[in-house]
């Protein structure tokens, strides 16, 4: 089965991104396909490479980056939600005249159309949120 995943809450405050991660890992292990993971609302904050959780806690962004690398996952951060919350890739930082960017490896920034497209193409769209 082809799954599309929505993550709509931020890391650490909510368990949503952990549950999504565990679901994606389990689905892939069972031989399913995950066509895209779309990060929306505060979920975009999962994609910052500047978070420094305590060493004895799980490293949410690093887990996603590693999983994306291993399985060639498409991790998409919504641009409109990201701009509000200070998530920028290099292109966007340059374009907006900002002095830094913070997107982690394995994530990309794109539009809401990617969410709708994912819903159309996936057999099941599963939301992890509040």
């Amino acid at each position: 089965m082809k799954f599309g995943i929505v993550v709509s809450e931020g890391p650490y405050t909510h368990e949503a991104s952990d549950s999504a991660y565990n679901f994606v890992k389990a689905a892939l292990a069972k031989g399913h396909e995950v066509s895209r993971v779309f990060f929306y609302h505060d979920g975009v904050n999962v994609g910052t490479r500047l978070s420094i959780p305590p060493q004895d806690d799980r490293q949410i962004q690093e887990q996603w980056t590693a999983l994306a690398k291993e399985h060639d996952l498409d991790l998409v951060i919504c641009i409109a939600a990201a701009q509000r919350r200070g998530l920028l890739d290099k292109n966007e930082a340059d374009r907006q005249g900002k002095d830094a960017n913070n997107i982690a490896e394995g994530f990309r920034i794109s539009g809401l159309g990617q969410l709708i497209e994912m819903g159309i193409q996936a057999d099941r769209t599963v939301t992890f949120g509040d």
Partner: peptide, 14 residues
């Protein structure tokens, strides 16, 4: 932000 999705989604003729 839900409304933003609805408005973008409208372009997809679903």
């Amino acid at each position: 932000e839900a409304l933003e999705v609805v408005l973008i989604g409208a372009a997809f003729d679903q």
